[in-house]
Amino acid sequence: MSKRTLFVVGGAILFVMVLFLVSVQIAKSLIGTDSESKLVAGEGVGLVEVKGMILDSKDTIRQLRYFLKKDDIKAVVLRVDSPGGVVAPSQEISDQVAKFAAKKKIIVSMGSLAASGGYYISAPASMIFANPGTITASIGVILKLSNIETLMDKIGIKSYTLKTGKYKDSGSPLRQMSPEDRAMLQAVIDNTHEQFVRAVAAGRKLPVEDVRKIADGRILSGEQALALKLVDRLGTLQDAVEEAGRQAGIKGEPEVVLPPKKKLNYMDLLVEGAEGSFKNALGQAAGGMKLMYEAE
């Protein structure tokens, strides 16, 4: 290899390395630091936001635990704007909200949508505010499956499955669902739905039978939810902040404090990217089967 070629290759490698390091620094600056962000002057109300699909619980739990440990944060407002999501993360966040409410006040402020899993995580709070037009409730469980067996036959592709039990490939898109499959999956859904009903009844201090009557997946407006005691008051985010301040005994307008953003380095980015890819691969291998607390 000539000296010129070595020089070109070396220069290219150096350029790529510099570009990578610069990209990492930009990413880290966009992600943020560990410093708090304060919105107004005064004393301490934390603000935790849950937006979009609930697919993971770690960051929300981290923020709630952060505020729980801070003596100068007297209460927290949990802003929920979510159609729900996967069952287990919704349950984990709900459990952390209940633990928070046992020690400090936590006031939920519902945005445009706080349904299914979004309602599940709200139920244990000290108080729930909704806007009159908020879409909420949708107390139910859904499992969506597809079947592509006919398509596979049309394009001439055959699939073969080796398994250890008759239920191991239940829900597979590559074969018809048997009556036994349907009964087994329905039992899982019914049990998970009952968990939702009990969680709402406990969080809202309502009779289980009263909750069960409306736990058919129906959505409700904020006004309807208020009439059914699923929320406590109609009001905005600012109303929820002011109420949190009053319940925490803060005089005057409370200071709203955002939690510190999670600080990542380039190794975290690489590992989390690989982890996400691995989870996606596992999900596809399992036929994408996920129980969801999700509003349709």
Rank of each mutant, 00 (worst) to 15 (best):
L6I: 00
L6H: 12
G10F: 06
I13P: 06
I13S: 10
L14A: 13
V18G: 05
F20Q: 05
S23V: 06
I31V: 14
G32A: 02
T33D: 08
S37E: 13
V40A: 07
A41T: 15
E43P: 13
V45Y: 01
G46N: 07
V48Y: 00
E49L: 00
V50F: 03
K51N: 13
G52L: 13
M53E: 12
D56K: 14
S57F: 08
K58W: 09
R62P: 06
Q63I: 12
V76P: 07
V77F: 02
D81A: 04
G84Y: 02
V86T: 10
A88F: 13
I93D: 02
D95C: 12
Q96L: 10
F100E: 02
K103W: 15
K103N: 14
K105P: 09
K105Q: 14
V108H: 02
M110Q: 11
S112W: 09
Y119G: 00
A130G: 03
P132Q: 04
P132Y: 01
G133R: 12
I135R: 02
I135K: 03
S146E: 08
I148S: 04
I148F: 03
K154M: 13
I155W: 09
S159L: 14
L162N: 11
G165T: 13
K168E: 11
K168V: 10
S170W: 08
S172A: 06
L174P: 01
M177D: 08
S178T: 11
E180W: 00
M184W: 14
V188Y: 15
V188E: 14
T192V: 15
A202G: 05
L206M: 07
L206H: 03
L206I: 04
E209S: 04
R212M: 07
K213Y: 09
K213E: 11
G217E: 06
I219A: 09
L226W: 00
K229Q: 10
L230Q: 04
R233N: 05
L234H: 03
L237H: 07
Q238N: 06
D239N: 13
D239Y: 04
V241M: 05
E242Q: 11
R246H: 01
A248D: 01
G249K: 09
E255W: 05
V256I: 11
L258I: 04
K261V: 07
L264E: 11
N265P: 06
Y266D: 10
D268C: 04
L269W: 11
G273E: 09
G276C: 02
F278A: 15
L282Y: 05
G283Q: 15
A285H: 11
M292L: 14
Y293N: 01
E294T: 15
E294P: 00
E296P: 00
